[in-house]
Design a protein around this nucleic acid. Structure first.
Lengths: 314, 314
DNA sequence: TCCCCGCTTGCTCATGTGAGCAGGATCGCC
DNA sequence: GGCGATCCTGCTCACATGAGCAAGCGGGGA
């Protein structure tokens, strides 16, 4: 395509997309046949001169979703558009909304749903509508009794999801991380706790998020880890956590000792699940998102466009 | 349109614009008739959910051009797209290119073209192609012998435009602004100078830019005005200059004494011209652009999208 | 110089799409 | 509850568009 044709294709595109002229009219204006105009428009599209964006909080990016499925081997992917997003909060909200939509449309409706907790999960629970499912049992899959601020967020999340889905919630009455291994083993051997974990293992589906390995983590906020602990984990290669377990960019446990003191499902149990839905969005979580997908921690990913492109193109 | 339809229209738009499905296929996927799909798509467009952009340095915004013509009474308007612009320089270049394109396509080809000088005009001269006209005579319409740096930019501009147009240039051998009124009057009564100005008055068309009233002005750079002079002009209400004459937001001369010492065509002579093409782009020039258009200094405006929207919507 | 190959052009035809219309559902109002 | 007005739906039809094809054009090699 020489320069003259390139310019003509731009003029044609202006008349076609901005002025709503027919290809025939454009042909008359530019002294071309209508077929030539059609070809110029096709070339303008093909060479990427025409960008069509869907501006809506609920808009998704289907081509990126397909690429994620095909190139990353995911069973499904939901990618929300970042077009018009003003703040990280808005992105987070769009993603939570999309996750809620995905759950609502999920067939067959899961009878037992294992969930983690955190800011993302809480927001998803808020975006779910009453009656999104009929009689879903929600089980907490990792410990979450908060040590200081925000008491009950973990519980509120699971209960909220369950109530709106016309079912009940089973909470895991245990801290996320214990200070001593012995305490953790004692708690896990408790009949109630063991029963909940057993129920969690039998869930039809899991819904969880991932946290970035930085000081804004819920583990720091909840008092399970100090900022210094996180720094140390980062030094060891941690990119973030999934259900409270810190992983490196290959999805391996960074600190086995710490991991042994963490209560809840193991990552391998998640990997073996037939349906594991990860919801991860935001620039800060690009690295964890990559680790989660690469190491097969989820079979379905709900994320934003920028994160998805990071996974696909580096 | 209720929320369900809104969501459906987004889903339909995704399938239509991103996946290239036919409305019929979308109907099958979403369990709608193809007519319903067509209506949903029409509504999505109408409600502004669909944005189509033409990404190309030469792309123009025809609807904005029309609005400028209709709402601002311009004979013609050329508005370059700002989509994908990275720097002010790039915007300036796109606009200069568009001005060069406009001149090239201008019919009838002007026999005598009056031009001002400055960064914008110089860039336009560089973007013109050899043979853009056949035998055009270029006349300088305002004084421009540079006092210090950049000697000859004014001359190079006029000569460049003339040479590429297969004609010759007539330069105005005078400074832009003189220190004393008497000197200015003496210069203007010089036979050569008077002859050039007379020729300038008889030009078929004028091409000029406008400068912002700030320290980056060519008048400061060329040594005709000190930064303090400019500050004073701004205090008096100046928003910028046209052919060396500083105007306020209504297009009135800000400092008649200074204006009397300025050599070249007057603003009223420009206003009376049948074809006066102003080329004004960039955020810094929004205010002057507004003054130029409001006070009828140009009949044709070449500008960028952002400036144009400023003119239209405030 | 001539010929061959490949690209472009203008076309036919099938399909996709928007305008306009009539019937029917829905809503508000009495 | 009855009635009218309004909106919505599914349709016909005319128009716009893209796929595919044959002829023409131009450039490069023998």
């Amino acid at each position: 395509m020489d320069e003259v044709d390139e310019l003509l294709s731009i003029r044609a595109a202006e008349l076609y997309y901005e002025e709503n002229k027919t290809q025939d009219e454009i042909g008359q204006a530019l002294r071309l046949t209508r077929w030539k105009v059609g070809r110029l428009l096709a070339q303008a599209k093909q060479r990427g001169f025409i960008r069509i964006e869907i501006l809506h909080p609920r808009a998704r990016r289907l081509p990126i979703e397909r690429r994620l499925r095909e190139e990353r081997g995911l069973d499904d992917a939901i990618v929300v558009s970042t077009a018009g997003v003003q703040s990280p909060e808005e992105l987070q909200e769009r993603t939570a909304q999309a996750a809620a939509d995905y759950l609502t449309a999920l067939r067959p409706v899961p009878r037992t749903l294992g969930v983690s907790w955190g800011r993302t999960l809480f927001e998803i629970s808020q975006h779910l509508r009453n009656g999104w499912a009929t009689g879903v049992n929600v089980v907490q899959i990792n410990g979450g009794v908060s040590l200081n601020r925000r008491p009950g967020t973990a519980a509120a999340t699971a209960v909220g999801i369950a109530q709106k889905g016309g079912g009940s919630a089973t909470l895991l009455p245990s801290p996320a991380i214990l200070e001593r291994l012995a305490t953790k083993e004692a708690i896990e051997s408790d009949r109630v706790v063991a029963g909940v974990i057993e129920l969690a293992r039998s869930a039809d589906a899991y819904l969880f998020s991932a946290g970035a390995a930085d000081h804004s983590s819920v583990h720091v906020e909840s008092g399970y880890l100090s900022p210094a602990d996180v720094d140390l984990l980062v030094q060891k290669g941690a990119v973030g956590d999934v259900v409270g377990r810190y992983i490196d960019s290959d999805g391996n446990i960074v600190d086995p000792a710490l991991d042994a003191r963490t209560v809840g499902l193991t990552l391998d149990e998640l990997r073996a699940a037939p349906l594991a839905v990860a919801v991860v969005a935001g620039t800060a979580k690009h690295a964890v998102a990559d680790a989660v997908v690469r190491s097969g921690l989820c079979s379905v990913l709900v994320t934003d466009e920028a994160t998805a492109l990071h996974l696909l193109d580096g």
